[in-house]
Design a protein around this nucleic acid. Sequence first.
DNA 1: CAGGCTGCAT
Length: 574
Amino acid sequence: MPLLFLRSALCASSSAASPPFAAANVANNSSSLSSSDLSVAALLSSCRSLRSLEKIHARIIRKGLEQHPVLATRFLSLCAAFAASAYASAAFDRISAPNLIIWNSLLAAHARHSPLSTTVALFNLLRRRSPLPPDAFTFPSLLSSCSQSAAFAVGSSVHATILRCGLESDVYVGTSLIDFYGKCHDVGSARKLFDSLLHRNEVSWTAMVVCYLSSGELAPARSLFAEMPQKNVVTWNAMIDGYVKSGDLVSARELFDEMPKRNTVSYTTLIDGYAKAGDLASARFLFEQSTERDVFTWSAMISGYAQNGRPGDALKIFLEMYNKNIKPDEFIVVGLMSACSQLGSLILAKWVDSYVRTSSLDISKTHVLAALIDMNAKCGNMERACSLFESMPTKDLITYCSLMQGYSIHGAGEKAVKLFCRMLKEELVPDHVSFTVLLTACSHAGLVEEGKKYFELMKNAYSIVPSADHYACMVDLLGRAGRLAEAYDLIKSMPVEPHAGAWGALLGACKIHGDIALGETIAKRLFEVEPTNAGNYVLLSNIYAVKDRWADVWEVRSMMRRKGIRKVPGCTWI
DNA sequence: CAGGCTGCAT
């Protein structure tokens, strides 16, 4: 798209016979900026979006300033900022004799947003074609590309080149090397470089602190942090993130409260930490405290709620953000879709689906697509879920499970089983989650023999040790089918401690099939495991009620009163 | 004379 734009702009401004920039070359041989050129420079420095950069580019071409080295450099830097590396290359290719600075700018644009192989290829081109050999500005971006991919071999050879060029003692180069070795988990080499650096700034120190943190060495990280002559927000944030990732939210919070200045990263890091630890109250408190919020901050709060089973709150935060005209990114949309899945609302799902479709977000990214399929499946739009599923080039376990679960929820157990078979044919290896989904589907659809078959298959063919969940599924399956004794035998034979779900499933089955004796036994166990769950008491009293044993009904009710257990209205969906 | 580089959340 940018390339097409460039072509049409060029065609419009030049005759077909002469190269588009031939005249401009002559005009700008003295590389000083005239007053009208300065206006373009001013435009570049106030440029805030790719759209406006494209407009400025057109102006540059029209004025014949395409060859101007300073303008070209600024232009390429902006391409880097807007992640438009292809656009950068297209513009670069029009520059007849790029100097080293321009080469460096192009390399930086690719280092951030292109694969390492592309960046390395570009670096090799630079070495052959640039009028000057690479300098201290060349290597930092190349190395950061190596760091991103943790490409030890490539980075090491770059290091060798740096030594040959005699650039190892440059702060920027040295810092990039420290970061590179850190990202490759070679803390020793990183530390050696750090100690050998004559000039260090807070970036070098921070890079070293991050090295320790990313290999889990909290103590040396903290003492280096304490030793630092200068710290800035990034340093504090890095240290806080280290504590968050190690699960020490108390230390993280102490630093957060202590730091002199906070930015959105500071808030987001801690909000995310609290949310992942399930402390949504603290997360929300900080969220409310944060005056500036970016997409990361909103996303942390939205997915925090979604991942902790509070879809309604996730939705509320999303709407608050939406009303502020902030553009959601893919992560926010994934959180939103996960909230919708939990709510199971078809209307909401349809709105979100069409919203995502019309937005400029990239739906084909696997996690977005997975969330979209999951949402549609769980909200009952199986047609849409299926067509999205079929559009996937390679299907994964997670997506198969989403679809199977969709069928299961909506009573089409046979289809879930069929899908499972197809999954096996595609040579995907089911894990314990897939079997939980499959067995649940079998139990919902009353497919007793299938369920038993797959339970055995799981143990024998896939060597998966059945979890309490798997047993609960099987107990439910057998119980619903009226095979209460078999279910009870299974629960008694469990090598793991049965959880309330298994007992509850059996108690429910006792109610359906009116087995009072077994019901009483089960209920007794269940009251031990889950003494405060009103549902269990209600279930037992209902078992009595079906057989008109009103005295026993009364006894259960009074037991509830004695224990101070209250029935939650409208919450009897087991 | 100008213009290019490194470290923290996804």
